[in-house]
Simulated scan of single mutants.
Amino acid sequence: MCGTENRTQLPLASSASGCSCCSTEAAPAPTAAAGATTVEFAVDGLTCGHCVQTVEKAVSAVDGVESASVDLVPGGRSRLWVQGTVDAAATREAVTAAGYTFVGI
């Protein structure tokens, strides 16, 4: 078999059955609780569901943040929604400390 490739062609997962890191559909924006503010930021460098969980966990640990949610765009600019009392500088620090690029609003 020298010089002959023998590969199995696998079908791509559809967005209906694929995992969150492979889906091309945008997630709906989270809704804020009464009195809470929701701010959207852009983040680069996320490629999979594990990246999403890492950023959400890091940002959720920031004082005043009620929740953090990421709409993943693998290899592109992902959207990060932060609810609560949002401090952009603290959010930037959390994202960069997690190993990703905080682009801003």
Score class of each variant (00 low, 15 high):
61 A>R: 12
49 G>A: 12
79 R>I: 01
27 A>L: 09
53 Q>H: 06
47 T>P: 02
86 V>N: 04
63 D>P: 14
58 A>F: 07
24 T>M: 03
52 V>T: 13
37 T>N: 13
33 A>L: 12
80 L>Y: 11
69 S>R: 10
39 V>A: 13
70 V>S: 05
54 T>C: 11
26 A>C: 00
57 K>M: 09
29 A>F: 01
25 E>S: 03
75 G>R: 01
84 G>R: 10
44 D>V: 00
75 G>Y: 00
68 A>N: 11
37 T>Q: 14
52 V>E: 01
50 H>L: 09
56 E>Q: 14
52 V>I: 14
34 A>T: 04
70 V>I: 14
61 A>S: 13
81 W>G: 03
32 A>E: 13
84 G>M: 12
88 A>E: 14
44 D>N: 05
69 S>W: 07
58 A>Q: 04
73 V>N: 12
50 H>R: 04
49 G>H: 08
74 P>C: 11
52 V>K: 05
56 E>T: 15
27 A>C: 01
36 A>K: 11
42 A>T: 14
60 S>L: 04
87 D>V: 12
34 A>N: 03
48 C>T: 03
86 V>W: 02
84 G>Q: 12
60 S>D: 12
65 V>E: 14
48 C>Y: 05
56 E>Y: 11
76 G>C: 07
27 A>T: 05
41 F>D: 04
85 T>G: 06
84 G>K: 09
55 V>H: 14
56 E>W: 10
59 V>F: 15
43 V>P: 02
85 T>Y: 01
50 H>V: 12
31 T>W: 00
81 W>A: 13
69 S>I: 01
50 H>Y: 07
69 S>N: 11
71 D>H: 09
33 A>S: 15
49 G>F: 10
